[in-house]
């Protein structure tokens, strides 16, 4: 099967919340010093979904990532996990886009890749949490889409997906080519084995500039935005936790219950 996975490099969402800073002058996040970026969590799960399908049916996985100043060790992680090819849409012009401009550029890159069976995306990126790019790509390419997948199988030339809903899951079947967004319930992504890391080191990513994918520069990156970011700010937290003390854990716990009763919480 020909599989494509879209991944995004983001500031590490597991960095301590206390290290999170916004520069109000630029409306941008200041990356915490010394914390390297990562592949967005759900995108790594999307890579895992593609790898499971490749394990079962064979085929080739092409990873596409859009951005600028992409850290090679970071964006190569899917290769180390077992993907075959990496295409980077890397140029300053791609920066500061929104869901529209990003989906447009990725859809044009996928058109250039040509034929494929399934495109995998994470359900949402760990930075802007928009959850639109995958569906935008599907719409721009005119292919069916299935969101929030926790299991993906290929059965008789169709894909069968278990889609998470609040009280269980739905089974959805779709013809290919299609696009699937993946959720964390699929399970933990595999570790990159040493052999994979060494193999990935030897693979040179293909770089596509805007002219390579035939995009109108007015429609990508910041100039292609359809949403205007008025303000980015950190909500103020009161942070007044009353710590109940005790002689030991059990005593503190009992006193906590008493305090909650006193405060009419219980």
């Amino acid at each position: 099967m020909e599989l494509i996975v879209c991944v995004k490099q983001v500031p590490d969402p597991e960095a301590p919340p206390a290290s999170f800073k916004v520069d109000p002058a630029t409306n941008k996040v200041v990356p915490p010093p010394g914390v390297p970026p990562v592949i967005s969590t759900f995108d790594e799960t999307a890579v895992e979904a593609a790898l499971r399908l490749k394990d079962a049916k064979g085929g080739k996985i092409t990873v596409v990532s859009l951005g600028n100043n992409l850290v090679r060790d970071v964006v190569k992680k899917p290769l180390a996990m077992g993907a075959d090819q990496l295409i980077l849409l890397e140029d300053p012009v791609y920066e500061n886009g929104d869901s529209w401009s990003t989906a447009y550029a990725l859809s044009m890159a996928i058109k250039k890749i040509g034929s494929f069976d399934i495109i995998f995306c994470g359900r949402q990126a760990a930075d802007w949490d928009a959850g639109q790019v995958g569906l935008g790509i599907a719409e721009l390419l005119g292919i069916p889409s299935i969101t929030l997948a926790k299991k993906v199988e290929s059965v008789d030339g169709k894909v069968k997906v278990e889609r998470i809903v609040p009280d269980g899951f739905e089974i959805i079947e779709s013809p290919t080519p299609c696009l699937i967004t993946v959720t964390n319930e699929l399970g933990e992504p595999r570790y990159a084995p040493l052999k994979g890391i060494m193999r990935a080191a030897k693979i040179q990513p293909t770089i596509w500039k805007p002219q390579d994918i035939g995009v109108d520069p007015a429609q990508i990156g910041a100039s292609g935005r359809r949403t205007k970011l008025v303000k980015l700010f950190q909500p103020v937290k009161e942070g007044k936790c009353e710590i109940v003390e005790g002689e030991n854990a059990a005593d503190a716990a009992a006193k906590l219950a008493l305090r909650l009763r006193e405060a009419k919480v219980l």
Partner: peptide, 11 residues
């Protein structure tokens, strides 16, 4: 946005 670390205002 950013997993709840920040709020963004859009038009």
């Amino acid at each position: 946005v950013y997993g709840g670390n920040a709020r963004a205002v859009f038009t």
